[in-house]
Amino acid sequence: MIKFEHVSFGYRGGRLFDGLDLELRRGAIYGLLGKNGAGKSTLLKLMAGLLFPKAGGITVSNRSPQKREPGFLSRVFLLPEEFDLPRMTMDDYARFYGCFYPDFSRKQLSALMQELEVPETQNLDRMSFGQKKKAYIAFAIACNTPLLLMDEPTNGLDIPSKSSFRRVIASVADDDRTIVISTHQVRDLDQLIDSVVVLDGSEILLNATTGEITDKLQFVHLDENDPALYAEQTVHGRWGVRPNDSGTESPFDMELLFNAAVANREAIKQLFKR
């Protein structure tokens, strides 16, 4: 679905990616995790063809994003972190912009707006940031593009809205649709994603499905002297990540995984080497 081959990219300040390789498969919900400034948004923009690699190649559904052909653009929707919406109601917006997407569903949009509790008749530019974000999320999903890229979609959403967002995303996931969600708020994606990409220090530390992760790692309560890839003290005791040598399944904890990947880069890379 998405393939990065030896991609190099940098802003004026310096080089961000150098020889980056990444492959994302069709029909999965990816969580793109990384610290601030790790390059998550840049990676999404490269996938969408908004930025051009300095070297290497990117293909999305066998097309080159940087050509920005209508056939490509109608199959990709990027929900940016910051956006302005025009002065019109969602009904007008859907009428004027929905027609550019062949699989756009007006009915689905109404259902999503209802689910996310956004009034359809309110002018988009008069909505609060959270309302606006939910309205745009609803539109993005209703476009039914095979690739949906979301940059920090839960930023600005209240707690019930975050739950609604997770519910909505889970309900629209299918084998033909790839969803890539970039976030630094890892808890927001718990129980939602089925694959994780961890980006740190301008490289991909980890690209694996949650199944592969729980096969190879254990997220467990640890004793004081138990060795671990990463551990942290909580009010409930010491919790951490360690290699799953016994093959026992444990509940996947994305925050622990992320911290383990960042704290113990080489060990994690070695464990998930393909």
């Binding site: 908004l50 209508p70 653009l73 929707f77 990027l78 940016p80 302005d84 550019f100 997407y101």
Partner: peptide, 16 residues
């Protein structure tokens, strides 16, 4: 060139 509008403008499925 607008922070809030550029992504949507570029991504609108119409030819350049």
């Amino acid at each position: 060139f607008s922070r809030g509008k550029a992504a949507a403008a570029f991504m609108l499925p119409a030819a350049k």
